[in-house]
Design a protein around this nucleic acid. Structure first.
Lengths: 205, 205
DNA sequence: TTTGTATAAGACCTAACAGTCTGTTTTAAC
DNA sequence: GTTAAAACAGACTGTTAGGTCTTATACAAA
């Protein structure tokens, strides 16, 4: 068991810095040696623990990405309160970490999806699973809001979820490009505008 | 002059298939040889016309990308009509070409920005220029709409432009991933919802 | 202390890629 | 038809990358 612990620890170390570098330079633009150099480890160590670079990456998705997306983008919107408020706060927080150049896993997702789309089906399958989970949870949050009287009942929950995911992925691309802080602010204002159109009123369809 | 024409023609051929492959497989994942093989041309031909792969790519941006973005995303929103309608139609058309798997240059932009962000400043500069042009034109269209009474005067034009760009880049990522047609439909519905919140009324702020 | 296994080191292999260089063909001018 | 420059062919180089293989060390059990 002690052995197993040590094994897990080094694998974890590799995965964490692996994700960092993959995020910073892209998957195809990051070599296994780059990661090993960062950790002062050797090829032998790497291929002792992992079958291939691709396998390594998939384990990163399963062990790090999935959980982080859960804690940053899914758990915060679970609850009985007004989902529009929950989502607003959730995005606010996620984008705030993004402003400070920390790993924001919504963006990591966007990066990787763009990189692997149409190029690596196996990896895309795993990334799509994460997106799907996010989507499902957004939809159910919105439906809950319709049921609880926070959201107009004519609203298309799937549509709203899609729109939210779209705008989030997009703003992260644009925030990475320049003036993240002011863009975050502007984005959040517009998100609130959009949410107004979803609140209960007669004219909404 | 005749010579110059032939020169331009082969350069054009190279650029067109270059863009296609760069779009499909990514820049770093497409070799110069891949492009040449597609055209049955040789290294000699390539490096006779271009200084380097990077140079080649920048010429593609300037000659193909910029113009296409103009014709697809900018010119359609120039005019005296209601900008919200113009933008709706513009997005509708752009996303429709996207559904049919043609090159949609808004998405190309998103792909490349993601690929080069923080990795190649020189190329990013050129891509950012295109984004900036798009943004500026969106902003001025919206301001025109405020002036002409189509849009509430309290609306933040820069914010709306940013939100539109975000959502567009994002939906293109998601459309590339799966069920583009239905996603396009859902997205456009929500866009119209959002636009409702921007139309003239007292409660809007 | 010995022994066996888990963990790691690093030399090595092969493929791919950006870019160079020398030589050949095509083309236009005279 | 000769000539010179433009346009292209393709072998070659230096480097980098993913992955393999043999060997060395750490460490627990006996």
């Amino acid at each position: 068991m002690d052995k197993n612990l040590k094994r897990m620890a080094t694998m974890q170390r590799m995965q964490v810095t692996g994700l960092e570098l993959f995020y910073k330079n892209g998957y195809y633009n990051t070599s296994v040696d780059d990661i090993l150099k960062e950790l002062s480890l050797s090829k032998g160590a790497f291929y002792y623990h992992f079958d291939s670079k691709e396998d390594f990456f998939i384990q990163i998705i399963e062990n790090l990405l999935v959980r982080k997306v859960y804690s940053m983008l899914i758990e915060p919107i679970e609850g009985r309160d007004n989902p529009l408020e929950l989502i607003t706060n959730c995005f606010e927080n996620a984008l705030e970490t993004a402003v400070h150049n920390e790993l924001d896993f919504g963006f990591v997702l966007n990066n990787f999806i763009t990189e692997f789309n149409g190029r690596n089906e196996r990896i895309m399958k795993h990334l799509n699973d994460i997106l799907k989970i996010w989507e499902v949870n957004l939809v159910s949050a919105i439906q809950k809001g319709k049921f609880n009287g926070h959201i107009d009942r004519h609203v298309d929950a799937e549509g709203v979820a899609l729109f939210l995911m779209s705008s989030y992925l997009g703003i992260r691309t644009l925030m990475a490009e320049s003036s993240p802080s002011s863009r975050k602010y502007r984005f959040m204002s517009q998100l609130r505008q959009y949410f107004k159109a979803l609140e209960i009123k007669q004219s909404t369809f």
